[in-house]
Every structure is written in structure tokens, then in C-alpha cells.
Write a protein that binds this DNA or RNA. Structure first.
Lengths: 322, 322
DNA sequence: GCAACCGACGAATCTTGATACAATTACGTA
DNA sequence: TACGTAATTGTATCAAGATTCGTCGGTTGC
């Protein structure tokens, strides 16, 4: 009878006594004939094992006014705002945004859809980290497609792959990876890379059939984990984009302050989704916030490249100001 | 600016700091410039307002073996087992069963369905008490139909009505009440009662179109809140049913130990669903446990009157024993 | 205009739950 | 077998959080 799940059963029992019935630890301890310390430890373990979940629900319509204003102003279909604890802590904001996005996503019907995913985005990674496995039956063939090749150092690439994989697992779908650098040195090399790998070709083909895209919005600077050159744009290339008027990029496709795409030879170096490939209205999700990204987010909104935005309060209010 | 939802916003903020970010109350207090006591109170309030939800998930497949055995043995489509804290505490078991059932129900797709509900069942009432409002869009016209007229004292009747109403609200459907006694003194009075009230007629008609039924399983005794006579069977009537071989009843329709319906003149006194009206395979839910109900549950299973069972471990094991 | 009341708040205090430490056991290795 | 190591549990203690109580500001009623 000594199976591996006996402890889990015990944890569940204790957890139910404590949380559901509100019995004190000492009392639980005495009825079960164990020490209070053990009860405490079991509860910790239960929490760790995700048997106990404490979630903070963002009450519906808490920020209703601002959200509605934003919707009207930019013609968005959905807006969600989270309160940032510290507007300067971009990492913290990204975590919060990801968590909120996870809640929203889990309420959505995704099975059978083709979903574009931007695995290098920190907010989207934190989304994946928070997402709970859905109990829903996996109906239809859900596909999770990477929307950009590898960028950043090897460690980061690894994380990206894992992130995509995990996302697919949680949603109950098949991951389609782009196993190639995100940025290449020339259009020729890019072509070669694409034709080289069957998986990559398959993923790229799927980009034409996106139902939902979780896009990454970025600045025209090289952020922390990324490094210039190699599989990413160089400092010079970013400078060039800026000189053309770029204020941000959506999955490495540059746009100006009005959201107008800036076509250049840089486009032919990227292995990833193009703006034209983004799904129809209703499927363009962005999870982005923090001061540094404000310009880029505004541009993306103006160009109508996204229609569902999850952002922080400060960014939201700035977006409404002028 | 002084709206009613400002405090909610504050609670949410504090709750997020505490639970999501794991910041100590004193620290939260000092950063927000309030006292630790206030933080504690705000957190309590947040919990009360259901902004913070702590749920204990019954890990998938914890009781897998027993559940599968039960499924095979009685040809059930779903079985869920909860661990009873105290097998003698029937009230406690009913609460637990209801809570478990709430989790299961909330994972189901119910919109557009016609759902039969047994509002006098204690376990089903506790289900309703636990159920969270679903965020899902209400698509189609979901109907919640009472499957039995009023039974028990006025107070209990009132609770029943509220329970049905609340269930309908939470699911996002329309309640159809049976505004008539559940048991009448003669078949003639029964007919009169049915024809009397339009609401009741509508509800009764809907009983022919059930997609899902949450049935109540009962013993052949008069349980605590119920009283003999009036709108319920008399002691003599129960005795008569027993003399015919009844070991239990499903919404006041008596069955013997093998689950075979016992037809008698008692049937013509009841305003409520008949066994023949129960929905097809897959839609017959029962939430029942505790020692006293064992016989009745077993009979219901043998007669295949239910195909989804939520019960306690002890009952489950007894059902497997012989 | 004043007294009585009510609710919100913070300081101090008490209760509850977490943890450091030691004892115990199980297990692998010399 | 004896020893070392690691895992597990309980005891005692400490920290974190809940609660009590008194104060203050605002409101109601006379």
C-alpha cells in the first residue's frame, strides 16, 4: 500500500481541514496524532505541490473606466490593467502582467486554434510560469507556433524553448518550434536556414494560419538579456531603424510613432512572423508595460497591430493623456 | 472620486502584495503608511469579499483506483471521491461532498442545457453555497428546473427556493420553480395543484427535456429537517413503501435493493420528476454519502438511475466490497 | 450646540503558526 | 557489524499576524 501518492493524500486531508474547515493547526495535530510542526510542514508541502492554491482575483471592473476609455480611444476589443507596485521595477511589472494574462488566457477557449507565441518575451514567459494546467479536454489539434527564431544567448534560447514547450503542454497543444536564429546576417543565409530544417518550415507555414497571436512589443534598444550581433540585430542596425523613425518593434518588425511599418532590408534578415501575418481583429494579444515600453506600445496601438492589451496602470493612463 | 469600489481596489493591492509577492504585513504597512493591524484587517476583508480565494484542489487521480473500480462495477461514467473527516458526521460529509461537486460542476459546460435540481438536498445546497460565479458568457437559454415540489417546514422551503434561485444566478440561467407541495394527500389534489399554477406547469413540462439532473438520493426514513405529513409522506406511507421492499428513494420515487422502481399509489401523490424522466446516460448526477444513505445509493447504482456519483471514501469502499 | 453614538484606526498585547535544533530512524558503505 | 549520512519528526522557541482596547473624527438626534 506504500504508494507514492499516500503523502499527497495526507497533505490534501490536512489542507482541507485547515483551509476549507478552518481548523487550527494544533487541533488538527491532536486529532491526527501528530505534532503541530508537522501540520505546518504538511501545509507548506501542499502549497508547494499546488494542492493549495491561493489566488488574488482582480475584481471585474476595478479599472473599468480607464479600460473602457482605452478601448474606445484605440479601438481595442479588450483591455486589462494591473496595478504596478513599483512603476520603476520593470521586472516586477512583467511578472504581474504575466500573471494577469495567465488568468485571462485560462478563461479563453483556445482548443483547436493556432496560437502564435513569442517565447523570448519576459512577460509572456512569466505568463507561462503562472499558467495552471487546464482540466479541459483537448479537443481538436491546438498548435502553438513560435513567432520568432532564437535570439539572445544560448541560455536564454533554452529557456525560450522550454517556455514554448510548457505553454503547449499546459494548453494541451502541439508546439511548433522555429529552430533557427531569429536574425541572420543576410537574406541568403536566411533562405538557407529556412529550407534547411523541416520543423522550421512547418512552423513558418503555420504563421500564415494564426488564429491568436501573443506578440512581443519591444523598444529599439537592446534590453538586458539580449546581446547585439550573432542572432540579433547589431547596435548599428538598431541605430539605422531609429534613423528611419522607428520607436518600437513588434516581434522585430519596426514601426514608427504612428504605427506605420518601416520596411527596410532589415526585414529580410528576420525569421519570424510579419505584421501582415498577424491574425484578424480579436486575436492580437500584447502583454506589455513599464515606462521604457510606453512609446512602443503606443505606436503598436496606433497602428492597430494589437487589439487586446494587458498593461499596467501608469502606462494605461499615459496612453490616455494626450 | 469617492466611489464604492475604492476600498476594493485597496484591498486588491494589499492582497497582491501579500499573497502574490509574499511581502510581510509590517513591510506593506510601512510602505503604504498604515499600521500592520490595518493590513491584517484589509486582508481579512479581501478574503471575505472573495478577492482572495484559497482553494484546495483534489489532486487528479488521488483515489483513481477506487474510482475506476466503481466505474467498472456499476457502469458509471464518472466517480469522484472525497475523504470524509469523520464518517459519523453526516452534516460534515454533506458539506464536503457539496464542495467537491461545486468544483466538478464549475468545470462542466452547462450553458444552454436544461438542468434538473433538487433543492431540498443538503449536499446540493452546500454545492450551491460553495459555487463561484462563473465568468463564462451565458450562451443559450440555460434552465434550472426544480425536480420536486416543496417539502418540509416553511423555513426549509424558503431555503430551497433561495438555493434554486442562487444556483440559477451562478450558472447564468433561468430558474423554473415548482410552487406546489411535493407530496399531496390524493391524486385529485395533485392534479388540481398542477393545473393551478402556470409556473409549476412550465417547470413540470421542462422535466421532460432534462439534459442534466442533479438528483437527491434519500433513505426511507424521515430525516431531520423534514416532518411527516403535510407536504411530505407520512410515517405510514414510508412504512408501506418499506413493506414493498423499498430501501431508498430518488426524488421520492421508491426503489428496492436492486434498484427496481416500486410502483404504487404513492407515485400519484408526488409532484416531481419521475424515474422515466431522468435524462439519458451521462446526465444523471448524484451527490450522496454517509453511512445512512449507503443502501439507497447502492440501490440507485444497481438500477442505473445515476451515472455520475460524488461520494465519500467509506461509502465508495463499501460499494466495492461485496 | 451638545451629547451620544458609530465606525475607523493604531498601539499594545496575545495567539497562532513557522523554525532552529536535537533526537530518532532508515539506509548505504567500509 | 559498525559507522556515517541523510531524511523525518517532535520540542521549544521565536516571529508573524490577529485581536483587544482606547482614541479620534464624524454623524445623528435632541
Amino acid at each position: 500500500m506504500a504508494t507514492d501518492l499516500e503523502p499527497r493524500r495526507f497533505m490534501t486531508k490536512v489542507a482541507r481541514m485547515y483551509y476549507t474547515h478552518g481548523i487550527r493547526q494544533i487541533e488538527i495535530a491532536s486529532t491526527l496524532g501528530i505534532s503541530q510542526a508537522r501540520v505546518s510542514r504538511l501545509l507548506q508541502a501542499a502549497e508547494h505541490a499546488k494542492i493549495v492554491r491561493t489566488i488574488v482575483v482582480i475584481p471585474e471592473g476595478l479599472h473599468a473606466e480607464v479600460e473602457e476609455d482605452l478601448q474606445k480611444r484605440y479601438g481595442l476589443s479588450q483591455v486589462h490593467i494591473v496595478e504596478a507596485l513599483d512603476p520603476n521595477d520593470e521586472a516586477g511589472i512583467n511578472r504581474d502582467l504575466g500573471e494577469a494574462a495567465a488568468l485571462i488566457l485560462s478563461a479563453m477557449q483556445l482548443s483547436g486554434k493556432t496560437i502564435g507565441f513569442t517565447s523570448w518575451s519576459r512577460s509572456l514567459r512569466s505568463l507561462v510560469a503562472t499558467l495552471e494546467p487546464s482540466k479541459k479536454k483537448k479537443s481538436g489539434a491546438t498548435r502553438i507556433v513560435e513567432m520568432l527564431g532564437d535570439v539572445g544567448p544560448p541560455q536564454s534560447q533554452h529557456d525560450s524553448t522550454r517556455s514554448t514547450q510548457r505553454f503547449a503542454d499546459l494548453i494541451g497543444g502541439t508546439p511548433l518550434f522555429i529552430r533557427a536564429p531569429g536574425v541572420l546576417s543576410s537574406a541568403e543565409v536566411r533562405e538557407a536556414m529556412i529550407s534547411y530544417d523541416a520543423h522550421t518550415r512547418e512552423a513558418i507555414a503555420a504563421l500564415d494560419e494564426l488564429d491568436v497571436a501573443l506578440v512581443g512589443i519591444g523598444t529599439c534598444n537592446i534590453d538586458a538579456p539580449l546581446e547585439p550581433g550573432g542572432n540579433f540585430f547589431t547596435v548599428e542596425q538598431f541605430a539605422m531603424a531609429k534613423s528611419l523613425g522607428a520607436v518600437g518593434q513588434i516581434n522585430l518588425r519596426f514601426i514608427d510613432a504612428e504605427g506605420i511599418p518601416l520596411e527596410s532590408e532589415l526585414d529580410s534578415l528576420v525569421i519570424g512572423v510579419t505584421l501582415a501575418q498577424l491574425p484578424a481583429q480579436g486575436g492580437r494579444f500584447a502583454v506589455a508595460g513599464g515606462r521604457s515600453k510606453y512609446e512602443a506600445v503606443r505606436a503598436a496601438l496606433r497602428g492597430h497591430w494589437i487589439d487586446t492589451l494587458i498593461t499596467d496602470m501608469e502606462t494605461a493612463e499615459r496612453l490616455l493623456q494626450e
